[in-house]
Simulated assay, not measured.
Amino acid sequence: MELTPLRYFLRAADRENFTQAAKDLSVSQPALSRAVAGLEKELGRPLFERDGRCVRLTDAGRAFRTKAARIVGLADDARAELVDDGRTGAVRLAVIPTLAPHLLPGLLRDFVAIRSEAEVRVAETVTAECVRKVRAGESDLAVLSNPVPDPALHVERLYEEELLAALPAGHRLADAAARPSLTVNDLQSEPFVLLGEAHCLSDEVLSFCRRSAVQPVVLERTSQLATVKALVAAGHGVSLIPAAAAGEDDGIVYRRLTGDRPTRTVVAAWDPERYVSKLTKAFLDVLRGQRAG
């Protein structure tokens, strides 16, 4: 059994789409289909149920997926361990968009200072895709916020980050002199501007509000934190923004909440069953000393 068809099978299983899997692997879709069909013939069982462009794993496919991932992982890890000199090569990092702009500049600067020959390949993407990349062996490490939606990953807490209330300038709650303290209850029934549902920050904001018995009116959803801030500045609503992202933004007043303050826990996550290179361990040591901002 060759490794290439196994890699094709695993990517198709992840994507549930042969065309997308072939694109990811930079091969033609017919070549990927032939490789998977050959694997099914060799095993004597169908691995996928085909339904137009979408494919779904059969029971046999789900059982085989675990074994195939282990085989490919062991082969990749064996090679990685043999060539690992701790100085050259690449660290493949997946990081969520609400952390990347504020965490990466200092992190990469400090890492380059101790490993100038190494390369860091960054994939900025949402939580679910960060997890998928680590599980698929496409990323060595992910930096995201808790909870991490995969119990199989090893999760290490890095730091806690406070979320600040972002208010349009001139908003009734923006004047600290007139209202010295601000609680989450003061935001009750205020229209909220949030990131799209794929972003964990929105889950954190809504979970905090629910714990505090506050039901925000979600007025806008967008995919970029910069757009959230622009909409707040334009008076479309209020939001909760990570402290590291709260700068000198025209039209926005940032305020800390008193009492029960909203926070998020920033973590590193990796697959404990995969080989962790010396370079990745060195990167982790630098990461442990970082704070966003």
Rank of each mutant, 00 (worst) to 15 (best):
A75F: 02
I96D: 11
L141S: 01
A142G: 11
R115D: 02
D140Q: 04
A113I: 05
A90L: 10
V148F: 03
P151D: 08
V91E: 00
N146S: 13
P149L: 07
S116I: 14
D140M: 06
T98H: 15
V148Q: 00
A80N: 09
S145G: 12
R79E: 14
D84E: 12
T66P: 08
V148S: 04
V112T: 11
L99A: 07
F64H: 14
I71K: 15
R87Q: 15
D110P: 03
A128F: 08
A152L: 14
F64K: 12
A90R: 09
L99R: 01
C130M: 12
G137V: 04
A100P: 05
A68N: 04
R109P: 06
L74N: 14
V95G: 15
P101D: 10
N146L: 05
A94G: 05
L103H: 05
A152Q: 06
D85H: 06
D110Q: 04
V120P: 14
L93H: 04
A136I: 01
A78L: 12
F64P: 07
T88G: 06
L153W: 00
A94N: 06
A118K: 06
P105I: 03
E129G: 01
P101N: 03
V72G: 14
E81K: 15
T66L: 11
A75W: 04
V72F: 12
E138K: 11
G73L: 03
A113M: 02
S116G: 02
L153T: 00
G89A: 04
K67F: 14
L108Y: 06
I71T: 10
P105M: 13
V134H: 00
V131A: 00
A118G: 04
L141A: 00
A113G: 10
A94C: 09
K133T: 03
L103M: 06
V134R: 01
